Lab assay of single mutants.
Amino acid sequence: MASQGTKRSYEQMETDGERQNATEIRASVGKMIDGIGRFYIQMCTELKLSDYEGRLIQNSLTIERMVLSAFDERRNKYLEEHPSAGKDPKKTGGPIYKRVDRKWMRELVLYDKEEIRRIWRQANNGDDATAGLTHMMIWHSNLNDTTYQRTRALVRTGMDPRMCSLMQGSTLPRRSGAAGAAVKGVGTMVMELIRMIKRGINDRNFWRGENGRKTRSAYERMCNILKGKFQTAAQRAMMDQVRESRNPGNAEIEDLIFLARSALILRGSVAHKSCLPACVYGPAVASGYDFEKEGYSLVGIDPFKLLQNSQVYSLIRPNENPAHKSQLVWMACNSAAFEDLRVLSFIRGTKVSPRGKLSTRGVQIASNENMDAMESSTLELRSRYWAIRTRSGGNTNQQRASAGQISVQPAFSVQRNLPFDKPTIMAAFTGNTEGRTSDMRAEIIRMMEGAKPEEMSFQGRGVFELSDERAANPIVPSFDMSNEGSYFFGDNAEEYDN
């Protein structure tokens, strides 16, 4: 993207840094990872977990959730003011799984939030270390993106479920800051804005008074975040219109849905970061690795190297396929839920299948599930090659597409044709070009129609051997075009429920 120079890199967003050079960025990201790792080690000690239990991804998720809940100030305040039966607002906890007599047992633990905050700050040299908290939120978000298709949420806001490739980060909490905003897809931002506008339509006082002023500035800020994701002048001009509207209503909703559809071809720039579970960072720190000293990046080879040398386990339900569970977590670790499966298959070195073909449910185990038949197995999170994460949407291309997802959002900077089903997408653009945004709409449609099938995206960008740390010898991959490109292809993934 041309304006790259004016933006802070995501590592800076990730670490609240002012302008830093590459070495400083690597050190501050490393410091953040160190903090998460030290916190995780301490929690495993508190909970008396064995090494194996500490490497269980379900335990990692519970521990991450506990610290996120302990620092969720708004919710904590709300819980104190609106006490609900049987919930102690000062405590947080969740299921911890232990191996007892050759069987997995679930144990519900409860801790004072104050105590968890103390352990977290102690692991982070006394700081609140917001960057580390956001990092864990993005890992949870990436896992949700890989596990669930947001059909219901899309339909509720009037969008087409086939636009799911635009929904990265749709389950990120509001408090995820600049680093969170960077990884949100165009569809996620559109959905947040539509929800806001709908509230304004239904509630006369939404934009009024002292609160209304705050609401208005939040609305304009979200519009600017979305505008910054678009790469064409016409899309940005249309966002200006939406932002400046005196009284946002149905016309703005129409414009936003139009823009979301246009992003299936004229893709937005959305950041991709490899955020790993805390149970990967903990053992690495415990083994003596100093992330701050060595430096770390979320968008280069580092996460690949770390996963190459990590042992992570997962509980497996009786009829689940461990290899499929591994694929789910591998995609989440690489922030690749909406990437082209052919690119992923090449990088991973084994075939990556669409969601609907995987015999696996989510990673988390519900409290009512029976533990008797639970097994555990090693997650295979290694890769054959590594590639640089991208934040450009890439230019655009036609490809055989599917009944489910009709476009992709690249996660890796790797040369390819970008699949999208042009006739299906263009069919949504018939007729409606009147109104105050008509010239911009016409211009956007013209650009979409001009998108050429034979153009290559990320020209000359390749993948790298894991021994090639400096990215000196790019390998331009070859793809098996007979395979499906979309992950949520004609899909039956479970729906995400809060």
Rank of each mutant, 00 (worst) to 15 (best):
M1Y: 10
A2F: 10
Q4M: 01
G5Y: 03
K7S: 13
S9K: 10
S9E: 10
M13P: 05
R19S: 01
N21C: 00
T23S: 05
T23N: 01
I25E: 09
R26H: 05
R26G: 13
G30M: 09
G30W: 04
M32C: 13
D34E: 02
G37M: 10
F39T: 04
I41S: 01
Q42C: 08
Q42D: 13
C44Y: 04
Y52A: 15
E53S: 08
R55E: 07
L56A: 01
N59G: 12
N59R: 00
S60I: 02
L61F: 06
L61E: 03
T62H: 02
E64C: 03
E73H: 15
E73Q: 15
Y78W: 01
E80F: 01
E80G: 02
A85E: 06
K87R: 06
K87T: 13
P89S: 01
K90E: 03
G93Q: 06
G93T: 15
Y97W: 11
V100N: 15
R102I: 04
R102P: 14
K103Q: 08
R106K: 02
E114I: 01
I116D: 08
I116S: 03
I116Y: 12
R118P: 06
R118W: 10
I119G: 01
N124C: 04
N124E: 03
N124Q: 14
N125R: 01
D127A: 08
D128N: 14
L133P: 13
T134D: 07
M136L: 14
M136Q: 04
I138Y: 10
L143K: 06
Y148N: 06
T151N: 12
R152E: 14
A153F: 12
R156V: 01
G158S: 09
G169I: 04
S170D: 14
T171P: 03
L172E: 10
R174H: 07
R175Q: 10
S176H: 13
S176V: 11
G177Q: 09
V186H: 01
V186W: 07
G187A: 02
M189P: 04
M189Q: 01
V190L: 02
M191A: 12
L193E: 07
I194D: 08
N205Q: 05
F206K: 03
R208P: 04
G209P: 05
N211A: 13
N211C: 13
R213W: 05
S217W: 02
A218W: 09
Y219A: 07
Y219H: 06
E220V: 14
M222N: 07
M222A: 01
F230L: 08
Q231V: 01
T232Y: 07
A233G: 00
Q235Y: 09
Q235L: 01
R236N: 15
A237F: 10
M239I: 05
M239Q: 12
Q241H: 07
V242T: 03
V242C: 15
R243G: 03
S245Y: 11
R246Q: 12
R246C: 13
G249M: 10
N250Y: 13
I253Q: 06
E254L: 12
R267D: 12
V270C: 07
L276V: 13
P277M: 10
C279Y: 12
A284T: 14
D290P: 05
E292Y: 07
E294K: 06
V299M: 08
V299P: 07
V299Q: 10
G300S: 05
G300L: 09
G300C: 08
I301G: 02
F304T: 15
S310D: 09
V312T: 01
I316K: 10
I316F: 14
E320T: 05
P322R: 01
L328N: 07
L328E: 07
A332Q: 05
A337Q: 11
E339M: 12
D340I: 11
L341E: 08
V343I: 15
L344Y: 13
F346L: 05
R348D: 12
G349K: 10
T350C: 01
P354Y: 05
R355F: 10
G356P: 10
K357I: 06
E369A: 04
E369P: 01
N370A: 03
D372S: 01
D372R: 10
M374A: 04
M374P: 15
E375A: 12
E375K: 13
E380R: 02
L381I: 15
R382L: 04
R382V: 06
S383N: 08
R384K: 15
W386H: 08
S392E: 10
G393F: 10
N397Y: 03
N397Q: 02
R400G: 15
A403N: 14
G404R: 03
S407C: 03
A411F: 09
F412S: 03
F412H: 12
S413Y: 05
S413L: 13
V414S: 15
Q415H: 01
N417Y: 05
L418S: 10
L418Y: 10
L418P: 15
F420V: 08
D421V: 15
M426I: 15
A427P: 05
A427N: 15
A428P: 01
T430Q: 01
T430G: 00
T437G: 04
M448Y: 12
M448F: 12
E454V: 15
E454G: 15
E455F: 09
M456D: 12
M456K: 08
S457L: 00
Q459Y: 09
G460I: 09
G462T: 07
L466E: 00
E469N: 04
A471L: 05
N473L: 01
P474C: 15
P474F: 07
D480F: 03
Y487E: 11
F489Y: 06
D491H: 06
A493R: 14
E494M: 03
E495I: 06
D497S: 15
N498W: 13
